[in-house]
Simulated assay, not measured.
Amino acid sequence: MSVVEQYARAHIVTDEDPRADPASVPVVLRYDPETDPRSVRVGLPGPLPGPHDWTLPRTLLEQGLRAPVESGDVRVWPCGRVQAVVEFHSAGGVSVVQFETKALLRFLRRTYMAAAPVAR
């Protein structure tokens, strides 16, 4: 089993002028089946409220691509046909991140391949 790390482009949703085109930012998606086979990590960039690395259940991310779900301080929901939103709550505020669904699906596929037992 090996670590899966994937970089994805995402948009940080803010309360700035809605006409402004939010720039995409690099986000690191990481899965380590040896350390925590049920969780994935999301590494957010820059000066955002709250922690920059979040750990969430892998199933939460997967289920949130089809319907709104939440667990603790994290919410995930589909946004139209091609995007998904992940919302992180902390004492410092809320970070709302919008991903392309295909990037998250690609990452999830890779995590399940990495966690699959090797046939001998």
Score class of each variant (00 low, 15 high):
residue 27 V to M: 06
residue 96 V to N: 05
residue 22 P to Q: 12
residue 37 P to S: 09
residue 71 S to E: 15
residue 79 C to A: 10
residue 106 R to T: 14
residue 14 T to N: 03
residue 47 P to C: 03
residue 79 C to W: 08
residue 55 T to D: 03
residue 39 S to H: 09
residue 15 D to K: 09
residue 25 V to M: 10
residue 31 Y to F: 15
residue 96 V to T: 15
residue 28 V to C: 10
residue 43 G to P: 07
residue 89 H to V: 02
residue 31 Y to H: 10
residue 43 G to S: 13
residue 20 A to P: 09
residue 26 P to T: 04
residue 45 P to W: 12
residue 57 P to I: 00
residue 50 G to K: 07
residue 62 E to M: 01
residue 98 Q to Y: 04
residue 112 Y to M: 09
residue 16 E to W: 05
residue 7 Y to H: 14
residue 119 A to H: 12
residue 93 G to H: 12
residue 46 G to Q: 06
residue 52 H to G: 10
residue 95 S to Q: 07
residue 34 E to W: 02
residue 14 T to E: 05
residue 55 T to M: 05
residue 69 V to M: 08
residue 61 L to D: 00
residue 19 R to N: 13
residue 97 V to C: 06
residue 80 G to E: 02
residue 7 Y to R: 15
residue 7 Y to F: 14
residue 82 V to L: 03
residue 77 W to H: 12
residue 111 T to V: 13
residue 89 H to Y: 03
residue 13 V to K: 08
residue 8 A to W: 10
residue 98 Q to W: 02
residue 24 S to H: 15
residue 28 V to I: 15
residue 80 G to Q: 06
residue 88 F to L: 08
residue 67 A to M: 12
residue 116 A to R: 15
residue 14 T to I: 04
residue 84 A to S: 13
residue 89 H to A: 03
residue 53 D to R: 11
residue 51 P to G: 03
residue 117 P to L: 12
residue 28 V to S: 12
residue 10 A to K: 06
residue 57 P to K: 04
